[in-house]
Design a protein around this nucleic acid. Structure first.
Length: 293
DNA sequence: AAGTGAACCTGAAGGC
DNA sequence: TGCCTTCAGGTTCACT
């Protein structure tokens, strides 16, 4: 499921285990995920100390005390589990994290923290759309996976004026424009649908038409920032709940207004419409034809 | 340039 | 019970 809020939730869950820890060993259990693991993957990580765990868009970035930088993407079904002694937790709990099919445990990081306690961090990814790559340089903007990524929808950078500039002149449907990682980095199918519903904008409208309306751009930028911020917040609370458990309980509790609600009543007060599903660029779009114009 | 569809891969869910 | 089809949070590439 990982869109930006889920990746950020995973990052926050992993951060206390990774940061400051020494990588004692790495098990690489297959040659590739979506892409081949980097050459000498385990050997080059072994012995390094983790300086920080960052995030850019849907990418996790592990900065070490020496080259390289580890870039990790969860794809559609990637997850991490933490094993610390007796306890176990899954940071960022979603569908596939529940299945503890060890056949899909593709990489294991053995860590030792400052108090010499050992932790294992296990990467599981049934569909193997995830990947791990190295950047030889700390200048990550030069890495092919990260170069060209657009603005983060967190913080205050994304406002109506900036959004208007990004959408200006584009003939593509607004749905596709918001999914374009070169414009805004980190939105996925769920939160694009949700943001368009909040802003009352039909997903089929042309991006350039939205760009021409300053009020709409401001409303859409606000909706994007709000839905991402709320989702991160919800992920955090779910994470806390989850870490108290044995790692096997509960889905990430989403409350979607339109996503996956085809045929159900629109949740906007007084609207009375029915959520519809259409396909755009091969992907499901959920929206309310009554209040999204 | 813009848009679509396919590809990568496994698993869940629903119809019959 | 099983077999079949469809669908899934992402990204990239090939083609109109």
């Amino acid at each position: 499921m990982p869109e930006l809020p889920e990746v950020e939730t995973v990052r926050r869950g992993l951060q206390p285990v990774f940061e400051g820890a020494r990588i004692v060993d790495v098990e690489q259990r297959r040659p590739n995920l979506r892409y081949p693991f980097p050459a000498d993957f385990a050997a080059r990580l072994r012995g390094r100390t983790v300086v920080s765990l960052a995030r850019r868009a849907k990418y996790l970035i592990l900065h070490l005390d020496a080259d390289p930088v580890l870039i990790c993407h969860l794809g559609m079904s990637g997850s991490f589990r933490i094993h610390s002694g007796e306890s176990e937790a899954t940071p960022g709990d979603f569908h596939y994290a529940r299945s503890k099919d060890e056949a899909h445990d593709h990489a294991v990081f053995h860590l030792e923290d400052a108090a010499q306690a050992r932790h294992r961090v296990v990467f599981n990814d049934p569909r193997r759309f995830g990947f791990m790559l190295f950047s030889e340089s700390a200048a990550l903007d030069a890495h092919p996976s990260l170069a060209g990524l657009g603005v983060e929808p967190t913080g205050n950078a994304l406002d109506g004026r900036l959004l208007a500039g990004l959408l200006s002149g584009r003939r593509t449907p607004i749905k596709a424009a918001l999914l374009d990682q070169r414009l805004i980095a980190g939105l996925g199918n769920i939160y694009v649908c949700e943001a368009l519903w909040r802003a009352g904008i039909a997903p089929t409208r042309q991006a350039r038409d939205i760009a021409a309306d300053a009020g709409l751009c401001a409303a859409l930028a606000d909706a994007v920032r709000a839905v991402i911020a709320e989702a991160i917040h919800a992920g955090g609370s779910s994470l806390r709940d989850h870490i108290r458990t044995d790692g096997s309980l509960g889905y990430f509790q989403h409350s979607f207004s339109v996503y996956d609600r085809e045929g159900q009543p629109c949740m906007r007060p007084g609207c009375g419409g029915t959520v519809a599903r259409i396909v755009q660029a091969g992907r499901s779009t959920f929206y309310c034809p009554s209040c999204q114009a």
